[in-house]
Design a binder for these strands. Structure first.
Lengths: 203, 203
DNA sequence: CCAAGTGGCTAGTGTCAATAGCCAAATTGA
DNA sequence: TCAATTTGGCTATTGACACTAGCCACTTGG
């Protein structure tokens, strides 16, 4: 049958489709400036219609985060496959940075913590971290040594990348070179990981 | 004269006073959740009255940032005075972390970039970074070596602290110890800084 | 002492996220 | 095949927010 003159034509929206377009838009305007009206416009739909596919703005951020974590995990896995040790760390680091700089809002979302009861989010978060953990295993670290190394590696990459995305490296010196040396520095430190215990600050 | 029954009593508000109370409130509720209505309530004033002291929400964030950068710069300077080399780096790192964790919104604000024409903001930003630069000078780094080291140090601290504030270190392992080892790792890397050139990722 | 400037105020506006409730399109199953 | 149910659009509205306009009393300085 032909549709009535005043009928709402159905777009083929799904929760995934909405999250994907949201990620694209957020990478353009910034995660914090993503609005449902702008997103609805892109999807050819009115703003309230989005609520058929999302719970809330926070829920949309969570959906973007889950997609992003999965994507980042795959990027890291692809970079490290077939490599080990310092080679794998270098490759993984550069892939991490490239992906993060290219998709700043997705990257920001990928660092959102899962809600306590969100098993899917927790799973993709863990999967991404597991790639890092597997690579660091080549240094025969375990227990607290391994946890400390993983935390150090994540911190190192995250700090650099978030400063870079924020435009915080103002001086003219080459940012690529700075990143390369940061990664090399981490590898140097990792080689002596077990023999460099933590000290507490002097009084 | 006695005031009329319907007269607006004057509070002693200033731009600084507003920014300080805003920083206190933001550290409680989060920088992104700071609202002018809540801030006005705290100051015993109606929301539009704040515009006599601030330009806009973004302007208030900037004011918080300037205060925060000054505060952080002083904290770092105090930590490093009378120390040098690895000792100074360790002391400065722990002070940085302590301050950042204690004042999460101020810390977030301290990482906002100054507007291009904002000389006061640029000055306090530079002053804080200069403390770091001075400490790293003990390693006789200059030019690109020094810039790379400063970027690496800032990235390392910022990454750890922002993950810690976000609650991203979920595993039970001791976070203090992880931080100590991260700092030690940086010091180890710094000792070999000149001899570890950057490599580009393999193909 | 009075004229100018300052710092409150009330009363709005526009932009958001979010809700309520309607109706046609799609789907399901007898 | 076709009726019942579910789904996915829609309009209209609310409430929280930043921000503006314009008023008036208090302060200050010549």
């Amino acid at each position: 049958m032909q549709q009535n003159s005043t009928s709402p034509p159905r777009r083929g929206l799904t929760r995934d489709r909405v999250a994907e377009e949201a990620a694209l838009l957020a990478d353009e305007v910034g995660l914090g400036k993503l609005t449902l009206t702008a997103l609805a416009d892109r999807l050819g739909v009115r703003q309230p219609s989005l609520y058929k596919h999302i719970d809330s703005m926070a829920g949309l951020h969570r959906d973007i985060a889950v997609h992003a974590k999965r994507e980042l995990g795959e990027v890291l896995a692809r970079a490290s496959v077939g490599r080990s040790g310092a080679d794998a760390i270098t490759a993984m680091s550069h892939s991490y940075r490239d992906w993060a700089v290219k998709h700043p809002a997705r990257y920001e979302a990928s660092n959102l913590m899962p809600a306590a009861d969100d098993v899917e989010d927790a799973a993709v978060s863990l999967a991404a971290i597991q790639v890092i953990a597997d690579v660091l295993t080549a240094y025969e670290l375990d227990g607290d040594d391994a946890v400390d190394a993983i935390r150090a590696f994540r911190s190192t990459l995250h700090g650099f990348v978030s400063y870079e995305s924020a435009g915080a490296f103002a001086w003219s010196a080459n940012v690529d070179r700075s990143f390369g040396r940061l990664v090399n520095g981490f590898i140097v430190a990792l080689a002596q990981w077990k023999s460099s215990p933590a000290k507490h600050p002097g009084l």
